[in-house]
Design a protein around this nucleic acid. Structure first.
Lengths: 217, 217
DNA sequence: ATGTCAAGTATACAGCGTAAGTCAAAAATA
DNA sequence: TATTTTTGACTTACGCTGTATACTTGACAT
């Protein structure tokens, strides 16, 4: 009855595995059905026996990524729990750079996402937040994660290279047109400022504000 | 005298105009070079006499959007200025829903973007922030704008329909699997919570935190 | 009047997602 | 065991995409 197929050389799992591998390594635009099939030693149309279409495949991929995010411990200290969740979200987005652009066009309402949201609300609600407050808090925290990571991914220079990059670009930043950016670049070159924005800065700002809000709404 | 078409009927400006029109109305994936040319009464290849390629067109489009954002008044009160800038950024992103997905893949370093960033730094720096602080502050504020709008655009239900949508989906949110989301939905249905997250909430959280940080770093 | 140059157009190519149809192997049934 | 049914893989084909190449045409300077 439930004897496993020996002929199934392709399975949804294997397909999603390879799709993630390709997207992570070569970017999302490099992921075509033909290429994916080729990497699996098969042909494009064979994939459609296991995956409805490319959008469905995408949703499976996003669900995998969602599963990588730490599920909040409902009884854990909310501040530390939210911190960990935010950092693991950022890590997942950086690991899979192709995800952020898709977060808009694709509504991800898979089990992993829902479970995570539920646990997040749960953690906050059991520690003094109302449901409305918990929803707002999660929204504000997630906004920071998404927005910060978006900017981080967009940034053309790697953190180690800020100083040399600033030195290189400095002559191109017209002091007349962009006086403040120019001065900022100068400060990065001379070491006054290392040029690194920090994920934790905004995160702690928000956590701190949430704490204050909960205690004195 | 009038020939069937007058020379130079196409200009970069006209092309970008129409491209924005199509993308705003029908989404980004609906914008193809052939379709765009057709809407301009021309053919696809004609566009290439005025625009290097589709990516270059995109950059022009993004630059137009960037120009819609309020340029901070350097001598204005920083709190109010940042508030206005954030709101106008969000408005621009909502007006052009196709933008956010592209913010990652396309580095926008056009004049309008640079001018805005420069003015933002300037406003903060002239009011007591160091350059490093100003950079962090801008980054945190922009993170909120991008992240919040991203979630807002992704959300499948319009704000007016939250209550009816919650009532509709309630039976589908398993109380066993997602107890907290279930309760949240209940509270939206019974009116305890209107289900609306608010852009200003997170924004004020951050502004408040920045103020505190500047005064006691 | 003629030559030059820029703008418009036609054709073509490689790639895409995927609908439709074919075929052979595995599973179910007899 | 023999036969039927189901299913996964494959081939072909269609309409779409961005754009390279080559050709034509209109406008203007000499």
């Amino acid at each position: 009855m439930s004897t496993p197929y020996t002929r199934k050389s392709l399975t949804p799992d294997k397909i999603v595995d390879k799709a993630l591998e390709i997207a992570d390594a070569q970017g999302f635009e490099a992921l075509s059905m033909r290429k994916l099939a080729g990497a699996l030693g098969s042909t494009a149309m064979s994939l459609y026996n296991h995956v409805a279409n490319k959008d469905a495949l995408l949703e499976l991929m996003l669900e995998r990524v969602a599963a990588e995010i730490v599920t909040p411990d409902i009884s854990g200290d909310w501040e530390e729990t939210m911190r960990q969740r935010a950092h693991s979200m950022r890590a997942a987005l950086l690991r899979h750079r192709w995800v952020p652009p898709l977060l808009i066009s694709t509504i991800t309402m898979g089990a992993a996402s829902l479970r995570n949201i539920d646990a997040t609300l749960g953690c906050l609600v059991t520690q003094g937040f109302t449901y409305a407050q918990a929803d707002w808090a999660r929204n504000a925290l997630d906004s920071h994660v998404y927005g910060y990571t978006l900017q981080e991914l967009n940034y053309p220079v790697s953190p180690e290279a800020y100083q040399t990059a600033a030195a290189q670009y400095l002559p191109m930043i017209s002091k007349a047109d962009y006086p403040f950016m120019h001065e900022a670049a100068v400060q990065i070159v001379d070491g006054t400022y290392d040029g690194m924005t920090q994920f934790s800065f905004g995160l702690e700002l928000i956590i701190d504000g949430l704490k204050r809000w909960r205690d004195a709404p």
